[in-house]
Write a protein that binds this DNA or RNA. Structure first.
Lengths: 204, 204
DNA sequence: GTCTATATAAAGATAGAC
DNA sequence: GTCTATCTTTATATAGAC
């Protein structure tokens, strides 16, 4: 142990504070001064950790967030058990445990503010770490007979992410009494699965 | 006819240009100079039409957009025919014909930048003009027996809006060849309807 | 209705002390 | 690693001419 924290911890805490603001509000609505204030620092100090300024910080934080989502989805779907219903419930629980990820805003507002190459890399990561992971599980469920053969896995994977993420911004008043976002997500997953001819256990 | 345009037309064209930028990108990512440039004006000219500046312009444009969406949903669902499937298809066609409306971004970023009373009014309008209109049609379909009695109409209404809007940001590469966003929306609607025990014509 | 010019404030960024 | 001070750019906003 050092006097205060482990080496590199200041950088980690900076990224945490930055993500807490960037993730829900986007790059344009957050200033470096906002982030510094959340840490009790001045904005000039941030350039020590990210010489590239706001763009570099946002890109680093967003990349870390996407990768963490990918890993979180992987492990939460794995621990959801063998059935696609369990996996999707696990995925929803994970997504709702994290700050909202507004993919529409990312595509329309955040990405155009970054260098083209950075933008491409991040959007590619979103596709691989979020959409594709879900899509693969859906495909496996089709092969096992758990889901109907007509399932458009790419379409449904994208829709499920949008669906669950939209629950993040559901105001508390819109929640049925005593039922939280996770219960709502489960209901929606059940509706979609039924629409995809979900058949417990698949063909034997 | 006047020499050029009808009275008040400059204001309308300003709102059109502003909406084209504000709707996809949000209040924080668009400057008054961006909007003025799109019209070949200087930003100072905008204050003639909206003395309250950016906030007033954004609020006016957003309110008009929500009201137009409400009217568009009403008429498109009406012309979709008597079945809930036709109505939802009409609603999807309407939403996809309009600029993307990112409700997550509105709630998380745009609204906090406005005076509390303005924010409340706009969020109330979103609920009444978008969610509630869909919810009422879903409720009617439950009563007629077209949809199962367990349908949580509020949950499904919110989910459908999020679903269709998320298609706006689907990159062209992700579209199956020859199939556009409207076809994708129809597929998703069919999945959801099936999950809600859709029964053509309801009970007789 | 729109312009030029200007005022003011906010935000990104750099330099150098501690 | 963080600060103060400063610079530069960008953005909102106002005043007054045309």
């Amino acid at each position: 142990m050092n006097e205060h924290e482990a080496v590199g911890d200041a950088r980690e805490r900076l990224m945490d504070a930055a993500e807490a603001l960037f993730a829900p509000k986007g790059i344009a609505a957050v200033t470096l001064r906002d982030i510094a204030a959340a840490l009790g620092l001045t904005h000039a100090s941030l350039y020590y950790h990210f010489p590239g300024g706001k763009e570099e910080l946002f890109a680093a934080v967003t990349e870390r967030s996407i990768l963490r989502h990918g890993e979180g989805l992987r492990s939460s779907m794995e621990s959801g058990g063998p059935s696609i219903r369990g996996k999707l419930r696990g995925a929803a629980a994970w997504l709702l445990s994290q700050p909202a990820m507004d993919l529409i805003r990312m595509a329309e507002t955040d990405m155009p503010a970054l260098p083209p190459e950075t933008s491409r890399r991040l959007m590619g990561l979103v596709y691989r770490e979020l959409i594709l992971r879900l899509q693969r599980e859906l495909d496996a469920a089709v092969r096992s007979g758990e889901l109907g053969p007509g399932t458009d896995s790419g379409l449904v994977a994208g829709a499920l992410v949008g669906l669950v993420e939209s629950l993040h911004s559901t105001p508390p008043e819109a929640l049925s009494p005593g039922r939280g976002r996770l219960e709502m997500a489960r209901d929606l997953i059940d509706i979609v699965l039924k629409g995809l001819d979900f058949h417990e256990g698949g063909r034997e």
